[in-house]
Amino acid sequence: MTRRSGRLQKRSENAPGQKGNTTKRSNRKKVQPLSKLQCEKNQLVLEGVAKPCNLIETHEKGVSTAGDSLVWQSPLPHLGWGSSEDVWVKMVGREQNYTHSKRFMQKHPTIQPRMRSILLDWLIEVSEAYTLHRQTFYLAQDYFDRFMLTQNNIEKNMLQLIGITCLFIASKMEEACPPKLSQMAYVTAGTYYEDEILQMELIILKALSWNLSPETAVSWLKLYFQVASMNTNSDLLEPQFPQDTYIQMTRLLDLCILNINSLDFQYRVLAASVLCHFIHQETVEKVSGLSKEATQLCVNWMAPFVESLGQFGRATLKDFTTIKKEDRHNIQTHTDYMTLLENASKNENSQFPTPPNSTEKTCQH
């Protein structure tokens, strides 16, 4: 394999489209590079190879977010392997230590909210192509949003490099067999050199002070649903919730996280609000430790997204040849999120009723 100045000249061994090793790739779909996606007037401009500019190698600064009220009494069941109170306190404490805010948009005048949506949508597509877990994508999303909060005046032609680097870091944190650096460079269609990704990786890690273990929105959602579905005296670590219902929840969460306004809420509030659209309010309060008042604003904000998804029907579980059936619900999957997002935005100013109370709603699992 011949490379010049670090640019990948040929497809990597495991890259989509390469001959050989077809068994491992049979479950992958071809991913378009972000520079070729149809993004209308706010399309990311990724022409040529942009060099890092206006990047601040600084430590992450704390920024307050909406939904500050914390409930420290643990809703977790008894844990045979540890203290439920200690586990809960540490999890909730991360909501304060790992801060995010949509105010980062004010620090980057050339970047529009839609550009973030396009980038995250593309990262979801890449995640499915490489059968990455949902947690991997949500770690990448968190790294991206927190990194952007530490920077100033980043140009839009840098977003793809930052995004794919965040996914590269996240995959090394979460995956047993993360994609190779050459595969990450390949998926950008040669827009970026491998050494540019490595250079950006160091910049991001330093800016985030190597704080790479947040409780993501999807980790909260999975925990809540697991606790809500548990049988008496069962082990919290044993998956017990129905996969089909879980993927409906994660699709709603995926759609919401693409919207910049999702950063107005703490991740645990966002996850609890998703759960409110599927199970009883009383159960949500019990498993999340959040009152109805703490989630109602987010639940109402989420209503247009629920309406948009309802028009597209239910999500279906996908099979992956290299993934066991009991784990397939944990693999990040992609759908036409940009169309769903546009439909939701049309209804954003409409008024929606609050979710029905527990006497009117039946659990969907």
Rank of each mutant, 00 (worst) to 15 (best):
Val299Leu: 10
Trp88Tyr: 15
Leu34Arg: 00
Met158Gln: 13
Asp244Ser: 11
Ala271Met: 08
Val274Lys: 01
Ser219Phe: 09
Glu125Cys: 12
Asn357Leu: 15
Phe104Ala: 01
Gln112Trp: 12
Ala344Val: 04
Glu307Gln: 10
Ala315Gln: 07
Lys156Gln: 10
Val63Asn: 07
Thr321Arg: 15
Pro16Asn: 07
Arg28Gly: 08
Lys361Glu: 03
Thr316Ala: 15
Glu175Ile: 09
Thr322Lys: 09
Glu194Pro: 06
Lys30Pro: 05
Ala294Val: 04
Glu13Phe: 06
Ala15Gly: 15
Asp86Ser: 15
His133Phe: 06
Lys292Ser: 13
Thr191Cys: 15
Gln96Tyr: 13
Ser171Asn: 06
Asp121Asn: 08
Met338Lys: 05
Leu70Asn: 00
Phe144Cys: 10
Leu119Glu: 03
Ser84Cys: 14
Thr165His: 04
Arg4Thr: 00
Gly67Tyr: 02
Ser26Ile: 05
Ile247Val: 15
His108Leu: 09
Thr322Leu: 15
Cys256Asn: 01
Ser182Glu: 13
Ile169Pro: 04
Asp68Trp: 03
Leu341Gly: 10
Val306Gln: 02
Gly163Asn: 11
Asp142Val: 08
Gln9Tyr: 07
Val227Glu: 03
Met173Ile: 11
Pro109Ala: 08
Gln18Glu: 14
Ile162Glu: 02
Tyr193Glu: 11
Phe225Cys: 00
Cys298Tyr: 04
Ser262Gly: 06
Glu57Trp: 09
Phe352Thr: 01
Gly6Ser: 12
Ser26Trp: 00
Gln311Ser: 12
Trp220Gln: 04
Trp220Gly: 06
Glu342Phe: 01
Lys206Glu: 12
Gln296Met: 13
Asp145Tyr: 02
Met173Asp: 07
Ser213Pro: 09
Lys361Gly: 02
Asn261Glu: 14
Arg25His: 07
Asn152Cys: 14
Gln332Ile: 06
Glu238Leu: 03
Ser127Arg: 00
Lys61Ile: 11
Arg116Val: 05
Ile56Gln: 02
Ser350Thr: 10
Phe265Tyr: 13
Glu348Cys: 08
Glu155Trp: 08
Leu221Pro: 00
Asn14Ser: 03
Glu175Ala: 09
Arg314Lys: 04
Glu194Ile: 07
His133Arg: 11
Cys39Glu: 13
Glu40Gly: 01
Glu155Gly: 12
Ile111Asn: 13
Lys10Trp: 07
Ser12Pro: 12
Ser117Asn: 09
Gln226Glu: 08
Thr245Ala: 12
Asp86Pro: 14
Leu275Ala: 11
Leu167Cys: 13
Phe168Leu: 04
Thr165Val: 07
Ala303Cys: 10
Thr188Ser: 15
Ile169Thr: 04
Met148Asn: 01
Cys39Leu: 11
Leu70Arg: 03
Gly82Asn: 14
Asn259Tyr: 04
Pro353Thr: 06
Asn14Arg: 03
Ala271Ser: 12
Thr131Leu: 08
Lys325Arg: 12
Gly313Ala: 09
Glu175Asn: 09
Gln73Asn: 07
